[in-house]
Design a protein around this nucleic acid. Structure first.
Lengths: 241, 241
DNA sequence: CAGTGGTCTAGACCACGCG
DNA sequence: GCGTGGTCTAGACCACTGT
């Protein structure tokens, strides 16, 4: 099991500050040396070296950007799906620099899955908003919102790179209150992967939420694909006895 | 991108019921043909075939047991960390056959991480219980409980393959009430992997909980390593406004 | 344009599961 | 003991990144 030894060795050298392309010692976001150089330095082939790196990747220690190389993973964002704090403030409160990029937004017919989540008939027109969110210039999550247009008329005329929570509150007097969420391990494919500069098959954390307002009315749902090393869910709950 | 095509092709053939070792058509837990046969049937090499299978594995469609082969993933268990239902009843309510195996139990000094979770000094003696849980004969999660011995005296004298929740309630009049949980994507290594018949580096869902009783007193914590395709978190939450 | 990562080939050996 | 999965080698070509 050569790749296990190589994996541990890489970890050590990362902590020691070697292995970097540049001479810097920052342990976050730094790029590693090229695979060929790493393979040579461990006296092995690229295949075995990539095995070791993939292991580190699955442990959340390093990550890959498609065709750009391997990087040290920054600390994950602590994310509480039961809290109303928006992404922007959440990131800032953890000393991270947030950015939201609007990919596109418009009306689409709800597919079967979305229709079920929003409790509407399939093919009903809903608002769909695709956004990518960044932490410190790294794309970490692809978020797709599906919004009931009856509840939020003219939503598309607002600045959708801002927080939806804020728009709801300021322009519609609507607050998120109850939420129903699902979390599972998944992977990024095709477009989803590309949006996060990842390769197909990259491990991901999938979070799906259905949100209700302060009157218990269904508002929207959102589907989030996180780079798996970029987030850790953290919540408190009082159990129903 | 041959492996993407092979991946899709395998999915199709699985749904059609081919590719199995036996002639059966059950889509759950079935073993696939050997890698060499699969590689030959797709006219490729084992390396590329394994690339395709790994992709399916990361999508939760198939899983591997160490040196035993590839199997179709059963539907995941829906798991609500805010609910008190024990594993046994949860599984039964979803038409699954549960089994709990006690690996070992005893007193150990708390390491730094456990001490922090339980709010005690490092090296304090606590009860540690290692258990593996099965669904339909498949090991799906390795659970380690760390219990404060002051709160649960003589706990080790009970049958620890039963539900801890039940033991707490029946013998100590203690109920789980509040819980603080963390969820992140992780991977299985060495012993942890072996306990679930997985290989080192296998993707996992890591769940960490700190549990409090009906009086708000800290009781125990538990660390759970799930096979990532075997579980989906599902919870409702009222947000604090 | 040079170098890199992504992908693929065609083998090989070994330890282990299973019959 | 046979076949299997786990691991590893030594190459190769191509598309893309970064300069």
């Amino acid at each position: 099991m050569q790749y296990l030894k190589i994996k541990d060795e890489i970890l050590l050298q990362i902590e020691a500050g070697s292995l970097f392309t540049s001479g810097q010692k920052l342990t976050s976001g730094q790029k590693l040396m090229s695979e060929r150089k790493l393979a040579e330095s461990f006296n092995t082939t690229r295949v075995t070296l990539r095995e070791a790196l993939s292991l580190l990747e699955s442990e959340g220690k390093v990550y890959r950007e498609n065709r750009r190389g391997w990087f040290i993973s920054p600390a994950p964002l602590r994310y509480d799906p039961t809290n109303t704090t928006n992404f922007h403030n959440l990131a800032l409160s953890q000393q991270r620099i947030p950015k939201t990029e609007l990919i596109n937004a418009g009306m689409v017919p709800a597919d079967k899955h979305i229709a079920q989540l929003l409790q509407i008939a399939p093919q009903t027109e809903v608002i769909r908003i695709h956004r990518v969110r960044y932490l410190d210039e790294r794309p970490v999550v692809l978020v797709t919102h599906y919004v009931l247009p009856d509840r939020l008329p003219h939503l598309l005329s607002h600045d959708l790179s801002a927080s939806l929570t804020d728009i709801y509150q300021q322009h519609y007097d609507i607050l998120y209150q109850q939420t129903h969420y699902r979390i599972r391990s998944s992977s990024l494919v095709a477009d989803t992967a590309a949006a996060l500069r990842a390769t197909s098959g990259c491990a991901a954390m999938y979070i799906e939420r259905v949100n209700y307002d302060q009157h218990g009315q269904l508002l929207d749902c959102d589907l989030e694909y996180w780079r798996h090393d970029a987030v850790i869910i953290e919540a408190r709950a009082i159990r129903q006895l």
